[in-house]
Nucleic acid binder design. Structure first.
Length: 415
RNA sequence: GUGGAUGUAGCUCAGCUGGCAGAGCGCCAGGUUGUGGCCCUGGGUGUCGCGGGUUCGAAUCCCGUCAUCCACCCCA
């Protein structure tokens, strides 16, 4: 039943096998890739002072204004569940005295009070990377390449990577003014939503899905025209390096990011199998000021729900861990002996299953088959008397009687 | 926050204009006195999401409510 007070809260999900195995595989794959890049794990609190996010992401952003789970804690502090990973990580690194050159990743749940939808939960999970250091096209290119490497490691094909720039911080006002100025003659052609956006988030007009707005946007001069030569050169350098690194990224002048802390390089990865929420990852270079300190770096976050959605389309079954052997007992005495044997096998690292309910041999065999165990070991009074077992290969049906000690050794050896 | 759709068995769903609550899959048992997959047989009381209303009678019609899904918005 999907309703009632025992169901999870809206936008929150219970996760169980085989999906949990798929999650584990994805997380392990990421750890493997990170270790190759010298990126170390950092774990920060899920609950932070609201000001940490407000300051880092921008007071006026939608995430801060209407999407955070915020409340007053018992000490009267205004706190929020983290809506993204960067702010808390930067806060922690600042306090730990981390310097430029620090490379970290984080993994875990994030919370946003939005209406649930395909690929969007209220509790969702991200794995993200932060590479600290001052603006550097090489660092940015390495970071995008690292993200691309992750998709490769996960076997997620068809990812489209788009790169652009917000320009250095000093360029932001002139970009905004330039955009509004060139937009003026086309004001009437914009949708109602974009009319409103002109005064709130003008850059978002570039990203509008309405056909009329898109044709207006296509005739607009590139935003790089309102940036300094330095900013334009930076983007060109990043694109050149990405090409050399073999990362299939295309520059897209319509690309925008929603958080205020970005400057220079920004990017996004999308996947066609995802529906309306098709961004699997997003990132960029940032400059964050908290509590008098300034942190510069480049990073990205990947939405794990979306990766898994794009990855499997329901085929999580193949990631389920299967037992190496299933112990079948004929009679109560063998059942107890099997319990003892199973403990020995498991302590030796052999994944082992058995049925303790005292069901028929046939039922036990069916359970073994369903578990997709590679081997089945059958023991009854005859085998117990001889300290033996019948080891059966479930794929071939071949069955051999052998001493228990030998079976144990063979199972531990992995065959 | 806005809009659209949907809630019936463990799962996927059928149930036409109100008249005994169903199918497939799964699961359990047997056919095989100690052996899985294929086949055959048997096994179904499920708050028809919840609460009201209309009616002789409601899974079906009406109202409310909760939940889920999808889209907008925003973002991963």
């Amino acid at each position: 039943m999907s309703s009632g007070e025992w169901a999870p809260l809206p936008g929150m999900a219970d996760l169980f096998s085989p999906e949990s195995e798929l999650w584990h595989a994805v997380e392990e794959g990421a750890r493997e890739v990170f270790s190759c890049y010298g990126v170390r794990e950092i774990r920060t609190p899920i609950l932070e002072r609201t000001s940490v996010f407000a300051r880092a992401l921008g007071e006026g952003t939608d995430v801060v204004q209407k999407e955070m789970f915020s409340f007053e804690d018992r000490g009267g502090r205004l706190v929020s569940l983290r809506p993204e990973g960067t702010a808390g990580v930067i806060r922690a690194l600042l306090r730990l005295g981390a310097a430029a050159g620090e490379r970290v990743f984080y993994m875990g749940p994030m919370f946003r009070a939005e209406r649930p939808q395909a690929g969007r939960r209220r509790q969702f999970h991200q794995v993200g990377v932060e590479l600290l250091g001052p603006p550097s096209p090489m660092a940015d290119a390495e970071c995008v390449a690292l993200m691309a490497h992750l998709f490769e490691r996960w076997g997620l094909g068809g990812v489209k990577i788009r790169v652009f720039t917000r320009g250095r911080s000093a360029d932001h006002p002139s970009v905004r003014e330039g955009l509004l100025r060139t937009l003026e003659p086309h004001e009437a052609e914009l949708c109602a939503e974009c009319q409103r956006r002109r005064s709130t988030h003008p850059l978002r007009i570039l990203d509008c899905k309405v056909a009329g707005c898109r044709t207006v946007v296509e005739r607009l001069p590139p935003m790089t025209g309102f940036m300094s030569a330095e900013s334009r050169g930076y983007l060109e350098e990043v694109s050149r390096l990405l090409k050399r690194l073999g990362v299939p990224a295309e520059t897209d002048a319509r690309l925008i990011r929603g958080l205020d802390y970005y400057e220079h390089t920004i990017w996004e990865a999308t996947h066609p199998a995802l529906g309306a929420q098709d961004a699997v990852a997003g990132g960029g270079r940032y400059r964050i000021e908290i509590d008098g300190g300034v942190v510069e770096g480049v990073g990205f976050a990947v939405g794990l729900e979306r990766v898994i959605l794009a990855l499997s389309g329901g085929d999580a079954e193949r990631f389920a861990r299967r037992p190496t052997v299933w112990l079948v007992a004929v009679g109560d005495r063998a059942r107890e002996e099997n319990l003892v044997w199973a403990q020995e096998l498991r302590r030796g690292g052999v994944a082992c299953g058995l049925d303790l309910a005292g069901r028929s041999v046939k039922a036990q065999m069916r359970a073994a088959d369903r578990s997709r165990a590679v081997w089945v070991a059958v023991r009854g009074d005859d085998e117990l008397a001889a300290a033996a077992c019948r080891l059966k290969n479930m794929a071939t049906g071949e069955e051999t009687v052998m001493p228990v000690a030998e079976a144990t050794a063979r199972l531990r050896a992995g065959a």
